[in-house]
């Protein structure tokens, strides 16, 4: 076992220090060390998107990031999406549009969709599907997820001009 390393990060706007072995993924650190289990593991090789987090200015699959790489980084996880008790418009839209069934992929979709709407305030259906193709859902056939993201875009940014 390699000695543990101290990592200093900002997670969901709070300074967080944690100790980890270099071989531990950031996903493992978030879940098992920091206790933020909202980020899920579905595949361990970056192909399902369930472990999506925001790392700095982009989204990543946290199963393919080492915990030690998070030194000095700013991280947003699903636990940081809502403002206190007020759900993010995407979270509300997912509920109103029944865009989840089992819910295991939902945290990853929400973080990914949030990044999409920051980049494209009014994404087309095709843009939305392309951006979210790194997130697998096996329950919904994606229909209600896409509709929820589009509805949230209108909620956040108003109707497209």
């Amino acid at each position: 076992m390699a000695p543990k390393v101290q990592v200093q990060t900002t997670i969901n706007n709070e300074p967080v220090q944690f100790l980890c072995e270099p071989r531990q993924s950031l996903l493992e650190c978030l879940r098992d060390v920091v206790g933020l289990t909202g980020t899920k593991e579905g595949c361990g090789d970056g192909n399902c998107g369930s472990c999506t987090i925001k790392l700095g200015d982009r989204i990543v699959t946290s199963c393919l990031v080492l915990g030690v790489e998070a030194e000095g980084e700013t991280i947003t996880t699903i636990e940081g999406l809502a403002h206190g008790n007020t759900l993010h418009p995407l979270q509300k839209a997912f509920l109103e549009h029944a865009a989840l069934q089992c819910g295991i992929c939902t945290p990853g979709f929400l973080i990914a969709a949030d990044a999409l709407l920051q980049k494209h305030p009014h994404p087309t259906e095709d843009q939305t599907r392309f951006w979210l193709s790194n997130n697998l859902c096996r329950c919904t056939g994606y229909d209600k997820i896409i509709r929820a993201v589009q509805a949230a875009a209108v909620e956040i940014h108003g109707a497209p001009q």
Binding site: G38, T39, I78, Q91, L100, G103, P107
Partner: peptide, 9 residues
């Protein structure tokens, strides 16, 4: 169970 499932709880 919606709120729990969209907030990671």
């Amino acid at each position: 169970d919606g709120a729990d499932k969209v907030t990671g709880r």
